[in-house]
Amino acid sequence: MANYPIVQNKEKARGNVFSAGGFYGRKTPVRGKELWVEKVLMLSASLFILAILLITLFIFAKGIPLIAKTGLTDFIFNTEWNPTKNKFGIGTMLVGSLAVTLGALLWAVPLGLITAIFMAEIAPVKVRDVLGSFIELLAGIPSVVYGFFGLIVVVPFIRDNLGGSGMSILAGAVILGIMILPTIINISRDAIRAVPEEYKINSLALGATHYQSIWRIIVPAARSGIITAVVLGMGRAIGETMAVVMVTGNATIIPDSILSPVRTMTSNIVLEMGYAAGDHQAALFATGTVLFVFIVLLNLIINISAKAGIKNAHR
């Protein structure tokens, strides 16, 4: 058994020698052409960065003046949104976005994590492949279709069985949860698969069962990848618009139960963008600014947690 890895390494090493030879062999005669390619690649990358910077600048330039006029805390925490009376407070939408996102995470994270563990550790290859293609399918469905499904199936179900109009936090959380499942499953499954096989074998050799090894060694070792999965899922949930607009009712009120309708920040922008002008339009950009900062903060958390993970692995 112990001899297999050595043989594989030898083969790998030989492969590398060949490809390295080919690479260097070709490099010298076409050096000029390669310089060109490098320049083109660099230009593309710069354009991309420029585009991001411009978008950021634009959103901030349009949004910041209104936030300054209203006052930052007033804009974020005031619950009155009444553009005709020049009242711009997105407090209800902040609560709406958080409520729908949290609701989605609450059920999609445990389910996604368990599915990921099942796929990485327990499922036979065939089952794993079938599940994998279903998850890919799930990830490929356009959000408007999810919204439509929510409107036709989830909303009436909630209305008939739990009361209210059905357009609610709950409906949003159900649909959003389904939408972020592929993200959570795929990323945490990859993280679990990346855990060195030796950990598991060592744990089993100590007399641990497969389940003990999974919960006490493998999942903790994949922790930073799992956190990344959750944060990315959260980012997707908070930024999702179309499906949410269709199922949450979009009322600018502070919800009193999970059956209350809510409006999220993204919904607010898409619902009013068509006819807004002047300060009203600026307020929508300001909503976008808040959302933007929110998502940047989330990304920061990902990076920090990922770096911490790398440090842990190499210490």
């Binding site: 112990a2 060195p196 030796e198 950990y199 074998i201 060592n202 050799a205 060694i217 070792a221 842990n312």
Partner: peptide
């Protein structure tokens, strides 16, 4: 085992 493998 061959490869020293402390748990993380």
């Amino acid at each position: 085992f061959q490869k020293p493998s402390a748990f993380p």
